[in-house]
Design a protein around this nucleic acid. Structure first.
Lengths: 110, 110
DNA sequence: ACAATAAGTCAGAAAAACATGACTACTAAC
DNA sequence: GTTAGTAGTCATGTTTTTCTGACTTATTGT
């Protein structure tokens, strides 16, 4: 009889996989930018100073693999690729909001 | 005029620090066990298969440092140490619940 | 004094994550 | 056919994280 079941997560549960998916070095920034609109590779490189092609490429592929982003080939004049937030990806915003709420509350700084 | 400000987080914001704090290899499991009651070092080692002293020690110290856990010396018969979830630590459960809600919803498996 | 239990620390090794620079593939313009 | 733009991959190297096993400190029991 477990009276306190506030977290029901098991060792290698989905929640932990999800957490891991969010916590790469550049993933949070990618999310942050993705909510503002479709991402393009070369833009990301410019918009995330200190990052690099390889790491961004890996991060994007992982996020596409987990259906957080969708990769779309835009067949227009200069033919390019857009990474768009999926519904699943969008649903993760709640997690970020929770995190923000906490850091706002707990470290009010003056 | 940013019309879509769903995430206001800046590159090295508190939310990302928080995320990083949660995402060590053993931290989520430590949290999961901490909500069920005070932790003891030797118990953790047994309860988290595959972990090791060094890593748990580092993780616990970080969590204590960030006031997620409190270290208490119990002056009783076999004199031992307990790591207890603080209010701050408890407030992080919301993040885990968000994560769980998502993984439940999105991968219903059957 | 000696052994046992609890809670670690420390140095070094191994594994995982991340970064760099050179290179590739495709398209379109000149 | 050469140049330029976009979107990468690849091999390699560096850095960070995690693991292992030996050692330490403190308390209690015999």
């Amino acid at each position: 009889m477990t009276t306190n079941r506030e977290i029901k997560c098991q060792p290698e549960c989905d929640a932990e996989k999800l957490l891991k998916l969010l916590s790469g070095k550049w993933k949070p920034q990618i999310f942050r930018l993705a909510v503002e609109g479709p991402l393009r590779f070369s833009n990301l490189l410019r918009q995330i100073p200190g990052s690099n092609k390889q790491s961004l490429s890996v991060a994007l592929n992982e996020l596409v693999e987990e259906v957080m982003l969708e990769k779309q080939i835009i067949k227009q004049k200069p033919l390019h690729i857009e990474y768009v937030l999926t519904d699943k990806g969008r649903s993760l915003l709640g997690v970020f909001r929770e995190l923000e709420a906490l850091s706002d509350n707990q470290e009010p700084k003056q």
